[in-house]
């Protein structure tokens, strides 16, 4: 893999994660627990899909083969998607979605804050904007995590179940390709291990306030960087890409 391909794949990793997470969150529109919350979820989803859009645009430039943002989003199969396993999990109940969001948002805040210092100006620019967005996302998802974790007996139990279910996908957030280290060395990419402890500390604090316990026996799942996903991504893409693929090559 040459440096250009490495960078292309690196950008796709970020873009895919945000698109899939935004897509999942957008599924709440029209189905939320309160009207206010449907607006809030849509706001976060729009931020995430917007980030994906900017990142895909940059990826097409880096690739230089004349593909468009939509080609990348709509014409790749699940084996070619590199999104975090966490992002593709079905939305579950509202607490499940908020907890997943909190785990991802805490990652995004730290990731983007590091990527803002990238020697690649386009990436640092996208990261600077996304960093601010993520800060609000995290505030929103953490407060819901706390509220629902420390709400009623039922809500606590639901949240603990969700945490038990989700925790096994958290290692995968930090996965990196060997080739990415080259990008790290040239100051373009972020070494995720550099903020892993900070992430754990931050997430632990929120979960503690939410009176939730991190499971100790979770067997960590991996594979997203090789395009090995859970079964859920295939269905998500089948739905998302169906119309775009049904009438190929036209303008929408």
């Amino acid at each position: 893999m040459n440096k250009q391909e490495t960078l292309f794949n690196y950008i796709l990793r970020i873009a895919d994660s945000q698109l899939i997470l935004g897509h999942r969150l957008s599924e709440w529109t029209g189905h939320g627990p309160m009207l206010e919350e449907e607006l809030a979820s849509a706001n976060t989803a729009l931020d995430l899909i917007g980030q994906a859009n900017s990142l895909y645009a940059y990826a097409t430039q880096v690739e230089g083969k004349g593909r468009t943002e939509d080609d990348l989003a709509y014409l790749r199969s699940e084996r070619e998607f590199f999104n975090h396993l966490l992002s593709e999990q079905p939305r579950g109940d509202f607490g499940f979605s908020m907890l997943r969001q909190m785990l991802c948002d805490a990652f995004d805040v730290l990731f983007y804050s590091a990527l803002m210092k990238s020697s690649d100006n386009t990436l640092s620019g996208i990261a600077a904007k996304a960093y601010k967005e993520s800060q609000y996302h995290l505030r929103h998802s953490s407060s819901w995590t706390e509220r629902l974790g420390d709400g009623t007996e039922e809500s606590h139990q639901r949240m603990q179940n969700s945490l038990n279910e989700l925790w096994r996908f958290t290692d995968d957030l930090f996965a990196m390709r060997a080739a990415d280290l080259e990008l790290v060395n040239t100051g373009i990419a972020v070494d995720t291990s550099s903020f892993r402890e900070a992430w754990f500390k931050q997430v632990s604090e929120v979960l503690e306030r939410a009176t939730l316990t991190i499971p100790t026996h979770a067997f960590m799942q991996k594979g997203s960087l090789e395009g090995r996903h859970t079964e859920h991504l295939g269905y998500l893409l089948a739905e998302m890409q169906s119309l775009h693929r049904a009438i190929p090559g036209v303008k929408w």
């Binding site: 309160m34 009207l35 206010e36 607006l39 809030a40 706001n43 609000y136 929103h140 407060s143 509220r147």
Partner: peptide, 18 residues
């Protein structure tokens, strides 16, 4: 509508400053 002050502030942000 909100159940606590933080929720009210966030809802205000999400509803009225889009």
């Amino acid at each position: 509508h909100a159940h606590d002050a933080e929720m009210a502030l966030q809802n205000a942000r999400d509803v009225y400053t889009r």
